[in-house]
Amino acid sequence: MNPLNHVAIIMDGNGRWGIKNKNSRNAGHKAGLKTVELIIKNSIDHNIKFLTLYAFSTENWKRPKKEINYLFSLLENFLKNKLINFNKHNIKLKIIGKKNFSKNLNNLLKKSESKTKNNTKIQVNLALNYGAKSEIINAVNKLNKQNLKITEKNISSHLYTKNIPDPELLIRTGNTKRLSNFLLWQLSYSEIFFEKKLWPDFNTNNFNKIIRKYKNLKRNFGSI
């Protein structure tokens, strides 16, 4: 069976779920947080060491300001309310992306990372204000400034995900089949599963089914 250390998820469908069920995109974002908690717990049950969640992309700034403000208020409340629980369950939190939010949110993100940095059960990477193309450009620029040779190893060591193994598995919910500028470098050999369910409807049975399928795949990595 294939080992599974790192799962990455594009949590798509919150807004559509909210419109369909509550006539409110924001209601979908709120419902999606329950799925986040569920999947973190289930990942621990599967002994997965890294879980990367695509929470807010660099392209999401194009959304209405009111929706963006609601998303960040949800995130602030989530971190404030769950930080103790993260430590209780030995969960490490890491933010990948550019931390150029409000002063309050930036401080909260730094505090959350600092307070959980020694936890070892699972590392949850929240991709916030994240874009893979800008991440790669940023890494190359750092190499140029340091007069280092541009190699795969050097680029990998200057990404937001340095010291984190590449995901073996990517899941995208919401019945959309694209990568949306997410972990383009790191996903080069990941197995990709597209799930029809919207993120708030995604559950442990769906997650377990995908993991079972992944573990029984024959992975060749270019060989026969």
Rank of each mutant, 00 (worst) to 15 (best):
residue 19 I to V: 14
residue 41 K to F: 02
residue 177 K to R: 14
residue 125 N to T: 03
residue 164 I to H: 09
residue 21 N to T: 01
residue 87 N to E: 14
residue 20 K to R: 12
residue 16 R to H: 13
residue 132 A to K: 05
residue 217 L to W: 09
residue 78 F to S: 10
residue 171 I to G: 00
residue 221 F to C: 00
residue 99 K to D: 13
residue 178 R to W: 02
residue 166 D to C: 09
residue 168 E to I: 03
residue 162 K to G: 03
residue 150 I to H: 04
residue 126 L to H: 09
residue 119 N to Y: 11
residue 79 L to N: 12
residue 167 P to D: 04
residue 22 K to P: 06
residue 146 Q to I: 08
residue 136 I to Y: 10
residue 58 T to Q: 13
residue 159 L to A: 11
residue 8 A to D: 01
residue 180 S to V: 11
residue 67 E to H: 12
residue 170 L to H: 02
residue 71 L to F: 14
residue 94 K to L: 13
residue 208 N to Q: 03
residue 33 L to A: 01
residue 88 K to C: 11
residue 79 L to Q: 15
residue 49 K to C: 02
residue 150 I to P: 05
residue 36 V to S: 03
residue 209 K to N: 03
residue 180 S to I: 06
residue 120 T to N: 14
residue 161 T to S: 14
residue 66 K to F: 02
residue 64 P to W: 12
residue 119 N to M: 13
residue 215 K to R: 01
residue 67 E to G: 12
residue 40 I to R: 08
residue 10 I to R: 03
residue 4 L to P: 02
residue 76 E to C: 09
residue 88 K to G: 08
residue 26 N to W: 08
residue 27 A to L: 10
residue 63 R to G: 02
residue 35 T to N: 04
residue 134 S to M: 11
residue 179 L to Y: 11
residue 93 L to W: 05
residue 183 L to R: 06
residue 42 N to G: 01
residue 205 N to Q: 03
residue 175 N to E: 10
residue 28 G to R: 07
residue 13 G to D: 07
residue 144 N to Y: 13
residue 147 N to R: 10
residue 137 I to R: 15
residue 181 N to Y: 12
residue 69 N to V: 07
residue 218 K to I: 07
